[in-house]
Structures are given as structure tokens and as C-alpha cells.
């Protein structure tokens, strides 16, 4: 059986909120290392990969592999009933028909309990190759969100060019063009404001801004976001969570011109 207790419901609320517009029905794969999710959007342009390590829960118990097929719209409805600071416990039997969610208020004696019916989801699981990326950029997640939103006002796609000069986000649209360039930057007092660029070779790729803006819904999960790029492979956008847990998005590049 599965029993996983999260100190704050907020974490799961934010994760589900960040991915629910991209993917609808997903398997939450539970085993003794934690709870994982991998799903593509309907058009197979983007892929979500979430890992909530067992260390992110206390306690965490999962004796055997269990796939919880959950509709994220249903899960959102139930999670709305949880206060951000509630303790959240997920429970399921070994061959479950439902997943049980319990929300406990730390301040009052209120205990809420919900069951969500599970679905049989036949999802293909993709192998994501280990990649030595040509460029890795760590930057404030709010900054990345702002750049994507600002450029989307002009164009549907953005080119991300990384060179030793820095990283340049540029777009061209009907009304004109725009770009934002960032250079490495260290803020001793506020490390969340750091921009770190690790480059082994110059990279230039073009991506759909609609997807990037969607990924940025995860910004409240982490002060920093990591962008990993290599020519002609999908972009990795990673939001690191506590205890080596993470929420990752992969986005296929635009091809040709």
C-alpha cells in the first residue's frame, strides 16, 4: 500500500496547477523511491517529468509499484478543498480503485477526507537520454517568466541564443522585434537573483512561447529555473524542489526555416 504524508498541501497544489493545462490524464507512478509522473501534451510537443522523492514526504511508505491513474481536473477540484498549510496524506491500496486524500489543519482539529476514482491510463513511457548539454543557464524563475510573457506579446516563438557574451532571448513579430540579453551575474545578498551561464559551445534554438509561458506556471515552486540547451535537442526547463525532487519540462525545438 501507499501512504505518503506531505507537510504542506501547497507543494502538490502548485505542481498540479503548473501541469494541468498541459496534460490531463496521468499516471502517478509510486514506488519506494517516491512518486513520479511522466506525460506528453496531446500534440507531443512537450513532456512533463515530475519526481517527488520519498524524502519529500514524512513518513513515506510504498511496498510495491502502484500506478495511480488520475484525471488532473478531478485532482484540482479536490485539492481546492485543501488549505495551503494543511498536512496532506495520500493513501492507496495495492490494486486500488481510488486514491484517498486527507487534509489536516495544523491549527484546528479539522480533518477532510476525499477519494478520487482512478482511471486505467495506457501511457507510453519515453526514455529520456542522459544529455551533456552545450549550455546550462540558471536564472530567477520570475525573470524567465517575465521575458517569456513580454516576448509573447510580439511573437509566437522565441530564439534562445547562448554564447560567451550571454544568453539572448529574441523574437520577431508583425509589429516589430524584441530581445532580452542576460549576462552572468552574482548577487551575494540574494543568491536567488543570480544568473549563471555554463557554456561548452554556442547554441541557438527556436521554441514556441505558448509552451514556455505555460511552463512558467511552475515559477512559484522555485526561485530559480534551469534551462538546458543543445543544438537540435529538446530544451529542458527544470524547477528544482527540496530533497532532490523536481518538476521538469521538455520542449521540442522548432525545425527548419
Amino acid at each position: 500500500m501507499l501512504e505518503a504524508r506531505l507537510e504542506q498541501a501547497n507543494l502538490l497544489k502548485k505542481v498540479v496547477d503548473a501541469i494541468k493545462d498541459l496534460v490531463q490524464d496521468c499516471n502517478f507512478d509510486c514506488n519506494d523511491s517516491g512518486i513520479a509522473l511522466q506525460a506528453m501534451d496531446n500534440s507531443h510537443v512537450a513532456l512533463v517529468s515530475m519526481m517527488l522523492k520519498s524524502e519529500s514526504f514524512s513518513p513515506f511508505r510504498c511496498d510495491r509499484n502502484i500506478a495511480l491513474g488520475i484525471n488532473l481536473t478531478s485532482l484540482t477540484k479536490v485539492l481546492r478543498a485543501a488549505q495551503n498549510e494543511d498536512i496532506l496524506t495520500l493513501k492507496a491500496e495495492d490494486a486500488p480503485d481510488v486514491v484517498n486524500l486527507v487534509f489536516e489543519s495544523a491549527e484546528s482539529d479539522r480533518i477532510s477526507e476525499y477519494d478520487i476514482k482512478l482511471m486505467d491510463i495506457d501511457q507510453e513511457h519515453l526514455g529520456i537520454p542522459e544529455t551533456e548539454y552545450a549550455a546550462t543557464i540558471s536564472m530567477p524563475s520570475a525573470e524567465f517568466q517575465r521575458i517569456c510573457r513580454d516576448l509573447m506579446a510580439l511573437s509566437e516563438s522565441v530564439s534562445i541564443e547562448c554564447s560567451k557574451e550571454g544568453v539572448k532571448f529574441a523574437c520577431q513579430g508583425d509589429i516589430g522585434s524584441g530581445s532580452v540579453t542576460l549576462r552572468s551575474h552574482t548577487n551575494v545578498d540574494k543568491p536567488e537573483m543570480n544568473v549563471e551561464i555554463d557554456l561548452t559551445e554556442p547554441v541557438s534554438l527556436t521554441f514556441s512561447l505558448k509552451y514556455l509561458v505555460g511552463f512558467c506556471k511552475a515559477s512559484s515552486l522555485s526561485g530559480q529555473v534551469k534551462l538546458c540547451l543543445s543544438n537540435e535537442v529538446p530544451l529542458l526547463v527544470e524547477y528544482a524542489l527540496a530533497n532532490n525532487s523536481y518538476l521538469r519540462f521538455y520542449l521540442a525545438p522548432k525545425i527548419g526555416d
Binding site: S157, S208, Y250, A252, D257
Partner: peptide, 14 residues
């Protein structure tokens, strides 16, 4: 204009 690539052409079955 540029076409949109697909994730499945990069990431295959494990």
C-alpha cells in the same frame, strides 16, 4: 516559417 518538432522524434521507447 519554422515547423514544430515533436518530442517523440527525440525521446524513444526506453
Amino acid at each position: 516559417t519554422a515547423g514544430q518538432g515533436s518530442i517523440t522524434s527525440f525521446f524513444g521507447a526506453p
